[in-house]
Design a protein around this nucleic acid. Structure first.
Length: 293
DNA sequence: ACTGTACCCTGTAGGC
DNA sequence: TGCCTACAGGGTACAG
């Protein structure tokens, strides 16, 4: 579910609530999510002050005063709800939250100002881990991550060099977190559409024999940055919506050009092509065969 | 090294 | 109304 723009939206919503507060209690209502919750989870969290809330790829990272980081991943269906003075509020997708089943409220953080943060995750593909801040970059989760797409390390040169000699299709290549960290199924499809590139094209076509980036690579880099930035500006995308939206949900789903638009007509003026749904590495891809080459 | 598939888990939509 | 299947924004572990 959440790709980079959604996780970033959640981060921005949670940061003002978390940062500077102290953790006064922790409820772990089950022993595991996708992985077991951290050992001595409660002891390691209670009493800690939250120093910062950062994002790397699709991970949320809570830096604690004692020197450890709490790393959280939302999987497909993870969401946070803020409980403050009896009012529920969920930043990012599922903003309104009326559909959240409390059966799936797995972890609750109590903060020093009385606020509580509830982690709800029906499919439990999300997880939480703790590790020393100083060792985080060397941790298996982070060690092999590719560049942040919105940072200045994502360049045509970088993408060309990583794609060089790879026969993998472009769609799978873009979704590989070791290449570009944070792109997922939706935004990979959307970026390829904006760049006019077929998801079936091979990653090696991003560079010539000497590794010099093609023009299409420059276009692709610009498209990735653009689509992610626009999505963040719109508060991310909210899919499989519940009733009762009250303001804060994402709006970018209204701007999808191809995702989930199979058999619709391509939005590009004069194109007239029909959006096709195909599979890459088992995930649905959407593209216009007419203007994506 | 690179596929492709199965799997983790629950909820929902659509066909019958 | 129910039952069944396919599918869902994530990632990993395999087998080939």
């Amino acid at each position: 579910m959440p790709e980079l723009p959604e996780v970033e939206t959640v981060r921005r919503g949670l940061a003002p609530v978390l940062v500077g507060r102290r953790v006064t209690d922790l409820e772990a209502r089950r022993p595991d999510l996708r992985f077991p919750l951290p050992e001595k989870f409660r002891e390691r969290l209670v009493g800690q002050q939250i120093v910062a809330l950062d994002r790397r790829a699709k991970y949320l990272i809570t830096a604690l005063s004692g020197g450890e980081d709490l790393v959280m991943h939302l999987g497909m269906t993870g969401r946070f709800t803020i409980l403050r003075d009896g009012v529920r509020e969920t930043p990012g997708e599922y903003a309104h939250d009326s559909g959240a089943n409390p059966v799936h409220d797995h972890v609750v953080l109590h903060l020093s100002d009385g606020t509580r943060i509830v982690y709800n995750d029906p499919r439990r593909f999300g997880f939480m881990m703790m590790m020393a801040h100083a060792e985080r970059e060397a941790h298996a989760l982070f060690r092999n991550l590719g560049v942040e797409p919105l940072g200045n390390q994502l360049t045509a040169d970088y993408l060309a060099s990583r794609g060089r000699g790879k026969k993998t299709n472009l769609k799978s290549f873009l979704m590989d977190q070791r290449i570009v960290a944070g792109l997922g199924n939706i935004y990979a499809s959307e970026a390829l559409y904006r760049a006019g590139l077929s998801p079936n094209r091979s990653a090696s076509s991003l560079a010539d024999r000497r590794g010099v980036p093609a023009d299409r690579t420059t276009r692709l880099v610009a498209s990735i940055k653009q689509v992610l930035q626009h999505a963040i500006d719109a508060g991310g995308s909210t899919l499989r919506d519940y009733r009762n939206a009250n303001g804060a949900s994402g709006a970018f789903q209204k701007s999808f050009a191809v995702y989930d638009r199979a058999d619709s007509i391509c939005l590009k003026p004069g194109c007239g092509g029909k959006i096709r749904r195909t599979l890459h590495a088992g995930r649905a891809s959407f593209h216009c065969p007419r203007c994506q080459r």
